[in-house]
Design a protein around this nucleic acid. Structure first.
Length: 211
DNA sequence: GACCAGGTCCTTG
DNA sequence: CAAGGACATGGT
C-alpha cells in the first residue's frame, strides 16, 4: 500500500468534504437502489429516473414484480436508459437472485457483506461497481464504489495505482462507515462532472499533484 | 454529426 | 491477460 497514494487520497477526501459538504445521493429503498444500479450502467442518472418513474407507473418498481413480469413490458419501461434489452434481462437475473436464491430482501439484509458481495457478483450482469453500489447505497455497508469518475479523479491528483487497487486504498483511508463511503463517492462524481472530462483534467484545483 | 454517459460480458490475439 | 467490440437511447 503506497504511503504517498494514501496521503493524496486523504487530501482529496478532505478537500472534497470542505468543498461540497453533505450532499444527498441515491436515496431510495432496497428495490429502487438495486434497480437503479442496473439501469445506470453506462447511462446518465437523469435517464434512469425517467425509467424508474415509468416502472412505477406500470407496477414494476419491485424485483418481486419484475421477476414474474413479461420482459417486453420491462424493456419498454426502461428503453430511455439504453441497452434496454440487456438491462431488462439483468433485472430479471437480479430478481431471481433476490427472491429465489436469497429468499427475499430480509434474508439478503441478514447476510454478511462478503457473502452478499459474492452473491451479487455471481449474478450475470452485475460487476464490481454495481455490486458495491448496491452494498453501499442499498444495504448501508461500508463499501467504497470505484467507477470511471473515481479512476479519472485519482489520476488527476497523481495516484498511479492500478484501478483494482483503488477500492482497498480508499477503504483504508476512509472511516469504516457506509456514510463516509457514500459521501466521498458522491463528492468525487460531482467533482469529476465539474472538472474532469474523459481525456483531460484541466482544473485540478483540490490537491497539489506534486505532493 | 460526433461524442459521451455513475459497466459488463464476450471474443481475439 | 490486455485490448477491442457489442449492447442502444438520449443529451450536448
Amino acid at each position: 500500500m503506497s504511503a504517498s497514494s494514501s496521503f493524496k487520497i486523504r487530501q482529496l477526501v478532505q478537500a472534497l468534504e470542505s468543498r461540497y459538504g453533505k450532499i444527498p445521493w441515491w436515496p431510495g429503498d432496497y428495490d429502487e437502489v438495486m434497480i437503479g444500479a442496473i439501469l445506470t450502467q453506462q447511462t446518465r442518472w437523469a435517464n434512469v429516473t425517467k425509467a424508474l418513474d415509468e416502472l412505477r407507473r406500470r407496477d414494476l418498481s419491485t424485483l418481486a414484480a419484475i421477476r414474474v413480469a413479461d420482459i417486453r413490458g420491462i424493456e419498454e419501461a426502461i428503453r430511455c436508459t439504453g441497452f434496454y434489452r440487456m438491462k431488462a434481462q439483468r433485472l430479471k437475473n437480479l430478481a431471481v437472485f433476490v427472491e429465489v436464491t436469497c429468499g427475499g430482501i430480509d434474508m439478503m439484509a441478514a447476510m454478511s457483506t462478503p457473502a452478499l458481495r459474492e452473491g451479487l457478483l455471481s449474478v450475470h450482469g452485475i460487476g464490481e461497481e454495481t455490486a458495491d453500489s448496491i452494498l453501499c447505497y442499498g444495504f448501508s455497508r461500508p463499501c467504497f464504489v470505484i467507477d470511471a469518475y473515481t479512476d479519472r479523479v485519482v489520476r488527476c491528483i497523481g495516484v498511479t495505482e492500478p484501478r483494482n487497487r483503488l477500492k482497498p486504498l480508499f477503504e483504508h483511508v476512509l472511516p469504516k462507515t457506509d456514510e463516509a463511503c457514500r459521501q466521498t463517492h458522491a463528492h468525487i462524481v460531482e467533482y469529476a462532472k465539474e472538472f474532469c472530462g474523459k481525456n483531460r483534467c484541466d482544473a485540478c484545483i483540490l490537491v497539489n499533484s506534486n505532493g
